[in-house]
Nucleic acid binder design. Structure first.
Lengths: 340, 340
DNA sequence: CTGAAAGCGCTTACAG
DNA sequence: CTGAAAGCGCTTACAG
């Protein structure tokens, strides 16, 4: 079934059918009715490739997982963002196409694949550093939106959560609970996110007039559980411990708790702990883990709207920062204190 | 940049360039070299829409989340399967397109969207019952592969894990540890998966010559944690408890454990527990949760290969069942027993 | 081994 | 308000 057959059946020209399909105003109500009926009956759906070829617009958004490591369909945080993004883009009339990293590795770069598929825009999901292939895309005329990735192109924007504010909420909470000796467990030094959280943490501690003890700032090789365990072992061996610790991810926090338990230390009685991300496991651990939740749905929905506006030339990009929320559970020791 | 310009630059015809792009043999090595060089320099990538229009093949696989409820980007099990599927399809030269459910709701069905995008095949992800829109696709000439969904069309196949075998592994393990009084926590009665696991469980118990106590078989409204908690409350109130329980999901198991703890019962000393799915949280709970892992990577890779073969007419569909594995942790009480 | 030409199914000025 | 025709960028028999 194609537009020509529909035209024949309705006894009109192909142009007329096309106009009706695209809601042009200058068609008589009578012909419109007749044609619509036939379209209904036949279940006709125009060929996307022909339409794209003729218009250069595909109604397709390219999805790129930029970080080579650990960021794919198995990453809960980005996935939740993507989920909200997908839903919103669907409402706006777009479908998503996922570029296989494998194809990328064996030749084509992201930009040429965007051209290849005539995508109307791209969402780039990362959290870590920029590869050259991403920069090329960023600098191109294809609208791009970064998630936790600061794009700078003229046709680019990004959404992110405020990593400084995350840390400042943690410090404030610790402060109100009476903790003055604060430690930190971060990821590797080339993680922007970990660095931002650490910088914000330091700044907030100083803001409250507390002292920084550098011995209480330790780092793992990544954001995962074993790194948290190892980091905490280091802390334990290096002498007196802080009263409260902020870990840059929930998994780091859980690893640290495992190490503390092995040494007979109690959480939160001996050391309070706050993680970051609010992964599912937080609710089921002992103690349950106090953490910072980023509003993933909001990040996804905002990304969708910003991209849509760029595609339709209603904006030249920009950025949006979403506010984090503290989720209080047991590990911070709130229930042990009077906050009144 | 398009094929015509490349042809001009190389001083050959468009046909020749096309043949070179598609690895036709009947081109002289000399012209091939010249053209390839120009393609390299210009970074030319053929337009997908033009190619699709001409060939009716898109190198695109449609991804459909069939179950309305709880099965989307936030579902860890299906996502892990999809992740492996995506990687494998990438290697085979395909990209993935995700159909927005929203568009679906407001008009088009899955079949016509497949036609619209000329997808070469579809993967349908579900686990629960069949909607009519899925059946239409299943019965069409478009190759489809179901994940935990039994498709029956002539051009359809599916992969699944053996829910009966899952249960039989659990029973065997309980049996070897000396437990003879076995309970079960399932999901709602219209979940095929839960029903299969329960049927397999009953069958295996009888196979080992043990008795079934129907009072020890309880059900929640879904696979989530609160359902497990409620189901266990029912069990506790209804009288003497079994020595070991198999829950149809890890979250059900965790909910059940929470209820048991509230009643001062110890796991596994008073009641042993085995869950199902091997979600991330299993490693971080107290006690850590013994569970059944389904080989998600293998499911995804198999689905990709089966779909590929159907697309290329090397197979007419079929099905494949992946074997589950028991992951022993603390909650089953293995460490308390001599299995010697 | 190479190329001219028709065709894939749409859209869009343009003429009427 | 309607339609004829060119064009989008490819592929593929077919002729040479």
């Amino acid at each position: 079934m194609n537009i020509k057959k529909i035209a024949e059946m309705a006894g009109v020209s192909v142009s007329t059918v096309s106009k009706i399909m695209n809601n042009y105003p200058d068609v008589s109500e009578k012909t419109k009715q007749r044609v619509m009926e036939i379209i209904e009956q036949t279940g006709y759906s125009p060929s996307n490739s022909a339409k794209t070829l003729a218009t250069k617009k595909s109604s397709l958004i390219g999805v790129i997982f930029a970080g080579e490591l650990n960021v794919d369909f198995t990453h809960p945080f980005f996935l939740a963002v993507l989920n909200a993004f997908k839903k919103q883009m669907g409402v706006l009339g777009y479908d998503l196409i996922f570029f296989s990293n494998e194809k990328f590795l064996s030749g084509g770069d992201y930009y040429s694949r965007c051209v290849h598929f005539h995508v109307d825009g791209c969402v780039i999901i990362s959290g870590e550093h920029m590869e050259p292939a991403i920069q090329e895309l960023d600098m191109s005329s294809i609208p791009c939106i970064g998630v936790d990735l600061e794009l700078k192109g003229k046709k680019s924007g990004y959404v992110t959560s405020d990593n400084y504010q995350i840390s400042s909420k943690v410090v404030e909470h610790f402060y109100l609970l009476g903790y003055r000796e604060l430690g930190f467990i971060g990821s590797t030094a080339n993680s922007d996110i970990s660095n931002q959280r650490e910088a914000g943490y330091v700044k907030a501690i100083e803001g409250f007039g507390m002292n920084i003890n550098e011995n209480w700032f330790v780092h793992g090789d990544d954001f995962f559980e074993p790194s948290g365990y190892d980091a905490m072992q280091k802390l334990i061996q290096s002498g007196p411990l802080p009263k409260a610790i902020f870990a840059a991810s929930d998994l780091l926090a859980l690893g640290a708790i495992r190490a503390l338990k092995e040494h007979g230390l109690r959480i939160p009685e001996d050391i309070a702990m706050i993680g970051c991300d609010d992964i599912e496991a937080c609710k089921y651990t002992t103690p349950t883990l106090t953490t910072i939740r980023q509003n993933k749905e909001r990040l996804g929905i905002l990304a969708a709207h910003m991209l849509y506006d760029m595609i339709n030339n209603q904006s030249e990009g920009g950025s949006f920062v979403v506010e984090p929320a503290l989720i209080v559970r047991e590990s911070c020791g709130s229930h042990l204190h009077d906050q009144g």
